[in-house]
């Protein structure tokens, strides 16, 4: 099994076999995190750069731990204390980092498509750790891994994603990933938070919670991202919570054996009640644990891949008319 691309930009462009290859590799690597000595020498001498242009605790820590458990050296770079504050562009920053000869770049950026842009400018494997409202492929993979681990399969299951579908890169990656792996996907939220035409991705759309939860095997609760919403898309948080929040009463009415997921961080009492988040149906902390194994698999499989031929910068500037 070889991967078509040396980058991981999204789940949209992966085949089912490639997704399974990532999940199977993560399955083999998970055991390392339960050892006394949580380290293998596999990526000794490789350098992983974490380029984070957006606040992140979970994802950045998870990538850093994953790299360190494989013995790679990691350098964390966050936009707040870097030359970005001096006005350097993304491409210039990346070119300078490339000159220091790292082996892999992990990037999170508020602009959709920023990781893809980097692939045209630097000759390194690029891993998307979340770009704008586009994709968050390692989150998608860890969600798939967790469901496969808990339910034993993904084929034929029904996944309901609840919340702000419009702005969620997690929703996008989950929609692509779960459908490729044979699950049915439903999305549910206030009409103002569901993009028009979402059905063209093959999902079923619901604006009321009860029918969306009927028969669901997996319930993915998304965070209401207050920081991303300029004007509130619903009258109040209390109303959102009443209409779409997952509480104990709604949990009890779910199909027996169904599981609750959340990409974190949770807003307690808004989209999910604390009793649900820490109930026996919740696999939220399993998702976090599995995130390390999945990111180890991504770093392992994308490291050491041969270089591709790519256009020169001059060709890029003239052919694509990209402004520096």
């Amino acid at each position: 099994m070889t991967l078509k691309s040396r980058h991981l930009l999204g789940l949209e462009s992966l085949t089912r076999a490639e997704i399974e290859h990532f999940l199977d590799t993560a399955g083999s690597l998970k055991e390392i995190s339960s050892r006394d000595i949580k380290k293998v020498p596999t990526l000794r001498g490789k350098t992983v750069i974490n380029l984070f242009f957006e606040a992140s605790t979970r994802t950045r820590t998870s990538f850093e731990i994953a790299a360190k458990r494989l013995s790679a050296d990691t350098i964390n770079f966050s936009a707040s204390n870097s030359s970005v504050t001096k006005g350097e562009t993304l491409i210039d920053t990346a070119k300078n980092i490339e000159a220091m000869r790292p082996d892999l770049v992990v990037i999170r950026h508020p602009a959709s498509g920023a990781p893809e842009l980097l692939t045209h400018w630097v000759d390194l494997p690029i891993i998307n750790a979340g770009d704008g409202s586009h994709e968050h492929p390692t989150q998608g993979l860890l969600d798939l891994f967790t469901v496969r681990e808990k339910k034993g399969k993904i084929d034929g299951l029904t996944l309901t994603i609840i919340g702000d579908i419009t702005h969620s890169r997690v929703a996008r990656s989950d929609i692509y990933g779960f459908q490729k792996m044979g699950a049915r996907v439903r999305v549910c939220g206030p009409p103002t938070l569901i993009p028009p035409g979402i059905e063209s991705l093959g999902v079923q759309k619901f604006t009321r919670l009860e029918p969306a939860l009927e028969g669901a095997d997996v319930v993915m609760v998304l965070r209401i991202q207050l920081e991303r919403l300029a004007t509130p898309p619903f009258p109040s948080l209390r109303e959102y919570s009443r209409l779409f929040g997952i509480n104990l009463e709604r949990l009890r009415r779910l199909k027996p054996g169904s599981i609750i997921m959340h990409p974190g961080p949770i807003n307690r009492g808004v989209e999910i009640s604390p009793e649900v988040a820490y109930s026996s149906s919740s696999v939220i902390l399993d998702q976090v644990e599995n995130g390390v194994a999945v990111r180890m698999a991504v770093l392992y499989l994308l490291s050491g891949r041969g270089t591709e031929t790519r256009p020169t910068e001059k060709e890029l500037l003239t052919d694509r008319n990209i402004q520096m």
Binding site: M1, T2, D24, T25, S28, L29, E31, I32, V40, P41, T42, R44, G45, L70, Y300, L301, S303, G304, R305, G306
Partner: peptide, 23 residues
């Protein structure tokens, strides 16, 4: 015991080997 992650040819060839299980 899977020995793939400890192979001495990985840095040269990249991860071309499918991982097996350590249990």
């Amino acid at each position: 015991l899977d020995t793939t992650l400890y192979r001495d040819d990985l840095p040269l060839k990249g991860p071309i080997y499918r991982l097996k299980r350590t249990d």
